[in-house]
Nucleic acid binder design. Structure first.
Lengths: 165, 165
DNA sequence: CAATTTTCGGACAAATTTATCATAAACCGT
DNA sequence: ACGGTTTATGATAAATTTGTCCGAAAATTG
């Protein structure tokens, strides 16, 4: 588990909003409650997370009827990193894998260089991938976004065959 | 933070033991207290972790004077994965990054394929890297193992120059 | 203006992880 | 056999994360 629950929920909600906005360009706000129910996220917990996201100006909110929340910027301008930074602290990317307090390039822990590669890749993803990238071609299924099956081992034609993972 | 504190401490302690055993082949047991103090790990917490490690037969222990703990197998035969498995659950490698309960190759979350690569690499490391690999050429410094500076950007000759990270 | 709907904020509760303690059990040297 | 030393165990406490609740505050509608 790399991200906290809060971060996972935040990303889920932001994805939901982005995709919904794409298909309902006329409607401005979506209610937190609807997102929570669609994604089976505990409502009150999500409400708290949403507050963080608005404080960090990733969301705008409006009270009252027809109110709700909406992306504060376009999906192209919201990166995973922005979301993580709002709800988690991103210090796990600087923290030593095995917890050495002085794990630096000068006094690296034995796993330092191997792990550096991993961290670099993780950082690359969360820094570059935007909501727009993620909702592209993805579709809702049971309230959650499912990626197009055009990358993996098996693409299209998923009949009775193929094992599960 | 990928691993739990407990897992970090466990790896630290196992590394310490392995290296110490290498340089003191005559002495059988090392005391938990000594490891805790050398690595600044809360003693009682480490003692708990050590119990898990002995239950999983990664360590053997002996009570009484001249007692303590020792590796149950040679460092070549102890992988990071073994240590993690003893103190954490390794389910975070199967868990979806953004927490979708149904994130499978058939209904992958939008980050699934990108993250798959990361997970594969993490698994590859913890599955293949052994204590023997890690202590090789590493040396103690303030009670902690420091890797040889022969990989990184800067090797040897680290005078007044070079920035920190 | 009143009623309704929604977010906001603080306080609280539950669960998990991290850390501490006290005591028992095992061992060793004498 | 005894006293000291060390791990083993179970109980407990503190800290953090996760989840819940309620009473506002703000906005819309009639």
């Amino acid at each position: 588990m790399i991200f906290s629950r809060a971060a996972e929920y935040a990303i889920q909600a932001m994805l939901y909003l982005a995709k919904w906005h794409e298909t309902h360009p006329e409607e401005r706000y979506l209610q937190t409650r609807e997102i929570a129910e669609a994604q089976e996220i505990p409502y009150y917990f999500l409400a708290k997370i949403v507050q963080d996201l608005t404080r960090f100006e990733l969301l705008t909110s409006a009270k009252g009827p027809q109110g709700g929340i909406a992306l504060a910027r376009s999906p192209e301008e919201i990166r995973i990193l922005d979301i993580i930074a709002a709800v988690d602290s991103t210090q796990y990317l600087s923290r030593c894998v095995i917890g050495y307090p002085e794990c630096t390039p000068e006094t690296p822990c034995p796993l330092h260089y191997d792990w550096q590669k991993i961290k670099t890749q993780i950082f690359h993803i969360i820094e570059h991938v935007t909501l727009a990238d993620l909702i592209k071609d993805a579709q809702f299924q049971n309230g959650r976004l499912v990626a197009p099956l055009t990358f993996g081992v098996v693409s299209v034609e998923l009949g009775e065959s193929s094992g599960k993972s």
